Amino acid sequence: MSRRWLVLLVTSLAVYMVFLDGTIANIAFPAIRRSFPTASLATLSWVLNAYSIVFASLLLSSGRVADLVGRRRIFFAGLLVFCAASAICGAAPTEGVLIAARAVQAIGASLMLPASLALVLAEFPPTMRATAVGVWGAVGAVAAASGPSLGGVIVDRVDWRWVFLVNVPIGVVAWLAGRRLLREARDDSATRLPDPVGVVLVTVAVAALSLGIVEGTDWGWGDPRIVGAFVLAAVLVPVVVLRAARHPAPVLDLALFRVRSFAVANVATVLFATRPGSRSPPGRCSPRPSPRPPAASPTGSGTAPCWCRARWSSRSGSACT
C-alpha cells in the first residue's frame, strides 16, 4: 500500500472516533442513567448535548488554527485530548465528571477533524482528491451509522463505560502510526492567528444556536432561555459576517460561500443534522445537532466535494462540516 493511502487510513481512524462518539453514547444512555440514579434525565442529557454543542462551536476556529500552527501538530494535540477525555469518561465516578469529560472530548474532536482532512489533501494530487475525500467522508458516515449497533453490543456484552474506553486503543494505534507517516503542513497564506474577537463571536453564536435547538423541546420553545438563545444567535451571525468581511485575518473565509455548491451543501448538512429526533436520548424526541460527515462526492465519481473546488485548507473543511 502506498504512503498516501496509509495516511488516509491513519486519519480515518480519527474520523471514525469523532463521528462514532456522536452516536454511540445514545444507545448507552439507559445504562448510564442506571449508574447515576440520583441524576435527573435533564442533567444526564448533557452527556449527549455537551459533545454536540462544544464540537459545533469550536470546529471552525480549530480549522483556522490548524492552518497556521500546523495540521500535524493540531491533529496530535486533538488526538491526545480526545483519548484522555475518553478514558476519563470511562472511569467517571459522577455524572458531573462524565459531562465535563464529554465536553473536553469534543474539544479534541474539533481539533482532529479539520486537521485530518487537510493532512489527507496534502498527500493526494488534485486528480485523486475527490476520491480521497469521498473515502474520508464515507468513514465518518459509517461511524455515525454503526454507533448505535456497536454501542448496543458493548453495553450488552461488557459495560457502558467501554463505549468510551474503546477509543483509547484506537487512538494509540493512530498515534503510533501517525508519528511515522504524517508530515507537517501549513497554509502558506495564513500568516497570523484568526481574529480573536471573531473566534469568540462565532463560538458564542454557534453555541447559542445549538443550545436552542438541543433544549427547545424540553425547556419549551417559548421559554425565555430558548428565545434568548435564538435571538443571541440571530444578532451575532450578521456581526460575525461583517467582521469577517473587514478583518485581515477573518475567522470565516466568506469567499467560500461564493461557491454555490459549497453554500448549498452546508445548508443541506445543517438541515439534515438538526432534523427532529436526530440526537434524542431514549424517551425524548427533539432536534439535536450532531457531528455529521461533510457532504462529499462518492468515491470515484469524478466530482470534487464543495470545498475541494474552493480551497485546499482545513478552514474550508471545517466550514463544510
Rank of each mutant, 00 (worst) to 15 (best):
P293C: 07
A138E: 11
T321K: 03
G277F: 11
T43A: 13
A50W: 14
A234W: 14
V104S: 15
W307K: 05
M128S: 12
A115R: 02
A56V: 09
V204N: 14
A130G: 06
V120Q: 13
R183P: 03
A14W: 13
A115S: 04
A103E: 03
L48S: 08
R4Y: 04
V166W: 01
Y51D: 05
L79W: 12
V239D: 12
S290F: 13
A296L: 01
F164C: 01
A141W: 11
V18F: 11
G317I: 07
V97A: 02
G147Y: 05
R258G: 07
G228V: 08
M128K: 14
T11D: 11
A87L: 09
F272R: 07
W175T: 12
Y16V: 04
V135N: 10
R275F: 00
P291T: 09
I53R: 10
T191G: 13
V202K: 06
Q105M: 02
T43P: 03
E184K: 15
P248T: 14
S301P: 07
R3F: 14
W307D: 04
W307S: 02
I32F: 09
I226M: 04
R192Y: 14
G302T: 10
A310V: 06
I213D: 06
F76I: 01
F75Y: 03
P238C: 09
R279A: 05
S149C: 09
F76H: 05
A319V: 02
W219Y: 12
V104E: 08
I170V: 12
P224I: 08
C308D: 03
R258M: 02
A273N: 01
L242P: 01
S149N: 11
V200N: 03
L60D: 02
S146M: 01
L8R: 07
V69Q: 00
I99K: 09
L209I: 10
S146D: 00
R129I: 05
D195G: 06
V139Q: 04
T131W: 08
L252D: 15
G216F: 09
I99Y: 09
V172N: 07
A177Q: 08
R180S: 10
A304V: 13
G283Q: 03
N266H: 10
T321N: 01
L41N: 13
I213C: 08
D187G: 08
I74V: 12
V7F: 14
R292P: 05
D156S: 05
G63N: 12
P291M: 06
L182T: 00
S45W: 09
G63V: 08
V97R: 01
Q105W: 04
V158Y: 15
A87Y: 05
R258Q: 03
R243S: 06
T94M: 07
A138S: 15
L252R: 12
A31W: 03
S297N: 00
S62I: 03
G300T: 12
F76A: 08
A50C: 15
A229K: 03
H247E: 02
G228N: 00
D187K: 11
S210H: 14
A141C: 10
L165N: 14
V120L: 08
P37W: 02
D159K: 09
P93A: 15
L121M: 11
A31V: 03
T303A: 09
V133G: 01
L58D: 09
T203A: 00
R33K: 12
V259Q: 15
G222E: 12
I99C: 05
A229P: 08
P37D: 08
F55N: 00
V197G: 15
W221Y: 00
A77Q: 13
V172K: 15
F164K: 06
G283R: 00
V173C: 13
V65H: 09
I24C: 10
S189R: 11
